[in-house]
Design a protein around this nucleic acid. Structure first.
Lengths: 217, 217
DNA sequence: GTCTATAGCAGGATAGAC
DNA sequence: GTCTATCCTGCTATAGAC
């Protein structure tokens, strides 16, 4: 159990602060000095606890990002477990909810997405680690869940692209808050997030539904 | 006018090299020394031509990113001009092609997307500039094009979310090449890009089309 | 317009007292 | 486990010769 208590060990405070700062501004834009100041401890603490800056970064992924990703994934599967043999709607809704609302605090989720986007843009060791432990298993699981509902003659490649399209929306609406708010004029409050989830479910299931009867909002 | 000639002015070489490096690794991860070395000129050249590092970054957006974005947008509209009163399929196909294939060289397009993603994550002055000059007009144009084909009772908010979903796919498949390649096993060759475009068109128009007759590939 | 040289500073890391 | 003090590297930016 390690929630947001303010007086954990120096080590935990460092991990937490480092994650936030790395997510907001990236590895190089953040100095060890800034991290230790924000964590209210001494400059030397990073080297004492993590050896060096780079290893602190990797531990942020190991000890925070991956733990959180598992929480999200668990929330997703538990939500599905209730509806045995879940429908595509339920699957996608569970997915969108796990990511857009899910078990994470609001800022937490944003930082989480930011860190991943940075790794997607310029992968480091952290990406390989996360890909092996989290991304690949999650992706396969999702594909397996949805496959039965897809047209029979669909090939594996198209299943993959469909998965990625859903994921692209989920990630984009989490990550690209600035342009999303810019174009919609909405801030990320609960009502808007609910709306996003419904939109993703609707869009993923029926697309733009051009010229045809519209699915319920 | 200004293609990839190798012996342009120092100023142009600096802009070009800076764009590539900033895109790949971000503002802080790249030093002026590295830029000037790669541009085969002297360390002091950046300060002479651009005043300082930050202004070089802004000029990369002003003089390269925005120019290129206009080329992409022109390619999109010209493609549509051929089919007067273009159908939704043609609109989305033109959009996906402009971004995934379009008038840009392969690496160029990737850097272009990377730079934008970095600004989305942590906007600087460059984002405001680009949002005013490019993003907003483009977005409005796209919405106006598709609006006639959407269900009549649809509200503006939903139109916006639909736009953003299409854009999210286009951006994601351009930007997140690492995870996309990881999950599909495909590299970004011409065949795969063609496939991506078809997929985006198909998905955007019909969604997953669950349990219904599948649209042609 | 391009160069060398260097000022001036911030960064990561370590040694050693407590 | 935490602190202070310090080393040294690498950065941006500028001055001034050419």
């Amino acid at each position: 159990m390690s929630p947001d208590n303010e007086n954990k060990t120096t080590r935990d405070r460092l991990l937490k602060v480092a994650e936030t700062l790395f997510a907001q501004r990236g590895y190089h834009a953040v100095s060890v000095r800034e991290i230790t100041t924000a964590a209210n401890c001494n400059l030397a603490a990073v080297n004492y606890h993590f050896g060096n800056k780079k290893n602190l970064y990797l531990d942020v992924f190991r000890l925070r990002w991956m733990v959180r990703a598992r929480r999200v994934h668990d929330s997703f599967t538990q939500h599905l477990a209730k509806h045995d043999g879940a429908s595509p709607t339920e699957i996608i809704q569970a997915l969108a909810e796990a990511f857009i609302k899910g078990p994470l605090a609001d800022d937490e989720r944003f930082y989480h997405a930011q860190l991943m986007m940075r790794e997607m843009a310029k992968p480091t060791e952290a990406f390989e680690m996360v890909a092996d432990e989290i991304l690949r298993p999650f992706f396969r699981n999702l594909a397996k869940l949805l496959q039965p509902y897809l047209p029979e003659e669909i090939d594996e490649q198209r299943v993959n692209l469909n998965m990625l399209s859903i994921i692209s929306m989920v990630i984009y609406f989490n990550f690209a808050r600035v342009p999303v708010s810019l174009f919609t004029g909405c801030t990320y409050d609960e009502a808007f997030k609910e709306r996003l989830i419904q939109h993703i479910v609707n869009f993923a299931l029926t697309g733009l539904n051009v010229r045809e009867k519209e699915k319920s909002l």
